[in-house]
Simulated assay, not measured.
Amino acid sequence: MVNINGNLFPESALTLALNNRGLNYGDAVFETIRTLNGKIFFWEDHYFRMMSSMRILRMEIPMNFTMEFLESEILRTLETSVEKNSSFRVKILVWRKEGGKYTPASREIEYAISLEKLDHPFYILKDSACEVELFKDYFISSGLLSTIKSNNRLINILGSIYAEENAYDNCFLLNEHKQIVEALNGNVFLVSGNTVKTPPLSDGCLNGIMRKQLIAIMNTLPEFVMVEESISPFELQKADEIYITNVISGIVPITKYRKKEYGNDLGKILLPKINLRAGMN
Rank of each mutant, 00 (worst) to 15 (best):
V94R: 02
V2T: 07
T198I: 10
E229P: 07
E182V: 05
L125M: 09
F172C: 01
H120Y: 12
A167G: 00
D27H: 02
N264H: 14
R107E: 06
R211Y: 07
G22Y: 01
N151E: 00
L18E: 13
N19Y: 12
L145W: 01
E116R: 12
S202Q: 13
G100M: 10
G250E: 06
R153C: 00
F48Y: 15
F234C: 07
I217A: 07
F139Y: 14
Y168S: 00
Y262W: 05
V247M: 07
E108M: 05
R21Y: 04
F42K: 07
N64R: 15
F30L: 03
K39C: 05
F88N: 08
S202C: 10
D203F: 05
N152P: 00
I274H: 02
G267I: 13
M51F: 09
T245M: 01
V90F: 09
L271Y: 05
I74N: 03
E110F: 01
E235W: 05
Q179D: 14
A17Y: 10
I61K: 11
E83Q: 14
D45L: 12
D240C: 05
V2G: 01
Q179H: 11
M63R: 14
Y111S: 02
I124V: 14
A163W: 00
V82C: 08
L236K: 01
L190C: 04
S86A: 15
G100F: 07
N19I: 13
I40W: 02
S141W: 04
G38M: 07
N24R: 11
G193D: 13
Y111T: 03
N187L: 07
S160E: 03
C130N: 05
L221K: 13
L221A: 13
E261H: 06
F9P: 03
T255D: 02
S106T: 15
K268H: 14
